[in-house]
Design a protein around this nucleic acid. Structure first.
Lengths: 133, 133
DNA sequence: ACGTACTTTAGAATAATTCTATTGTGCGAA
DNA sequence: TTCGCACAATAGAATTATTCTAAAGTACGT
């Protein structure tokens, strides 16, 4: 997995330092994830990657800026980082504070406003909030 | 405006105390608003309503719980309270950190998942992020 | 090997929100 | 009306998440 982590970082214009390689390996292990910065700290630590909070935040931010990670913010200000960057939306289960992907092609949005005059739509995010009974 | 503020509070099962009346008057003045807790502090203060932070947060939370106010959380964890509780979505202008309403009937969402087994959809929120050039 | 610009780091700083413990108040009952 | 009490308001401390700072470390072109 090291090689692809390195390639990812280079592609993103990030110097492949040991911390970044470790974090990338933990994040991009082939399974989609929704993780908080804190989760990443623990995952890294469990994987033997020694890294500081500041670096975790820096790196997550850089990966987002590079489009390799997607930031998802929910009610209450909880911030998740989503390793699935394909077009898709989210379902949030209130009961257990869990976030789930919703395949991008399952939902269609029509009637987006025409903002005209040089304004560009950067993203359209849909969050479906669900409660079990 | 006092009367309707009092009616709103009673309808929500909240005792119409002087702070709540003041906050309700400031919030529900007939104009839709997107305000932060901090904005509310200042609005209240400008209106001569003396109220503490804790009470602002308590009251905003209670009004949300009662369905009189809608909480909108954006990237970066900024929390806005929306006095427009009719079905609608939002556009966020990245350039000036401003939130705008998008009439509920202008956008259609199709293909929402069937979650079956006693799960109910509590809300579907759409956030369109826009950048001007 | 060297120099430098980019990185990492610990810990402090900030910001937003919640908690705590005390004081105050609306309102029904006497 | 006054009383009592459950509910509410308050100041300030505490918590949580994130960013900043300044110093030490490291990748990499030359």
């Amino acid at each position: 997995m090291r090689e692809s982590a390195e390639r990812l970082l280079l592609k993103a214009g990030l110097r492949p330092t040991s911390q970044r390689l470790g974090l990338a390996a933990v994040l991009f292990d082939g399974h989609d994830k929704h993780v908080t910065a804190d989760d990443v700290m623990h995952l890294a630590s469990n994987a033997g990657v020694d890294v500081s909070v500041a670096t975790v935040y820096n790196t997550l931010g850089q990966l987002c800026a590079a489009g390799l990670l997607r930031r998802v913010t929910l009610d209450g200000g909880r911030t998740f980082f989503d390793t699935n960057i394909s077009a898709h939306h989210h379902v949030f289960f209130e009961d257990d504070d869990r976030l789930m992907d919703l395949p991008g092609d399952s939902i269609q949005v029509t009637g987006l406003p025409d903002l005209g005059d040089g304004a560009t739509i950067k993203s359209v995010d849909i969050l479906v909030r669900v409660e079990r009974r």
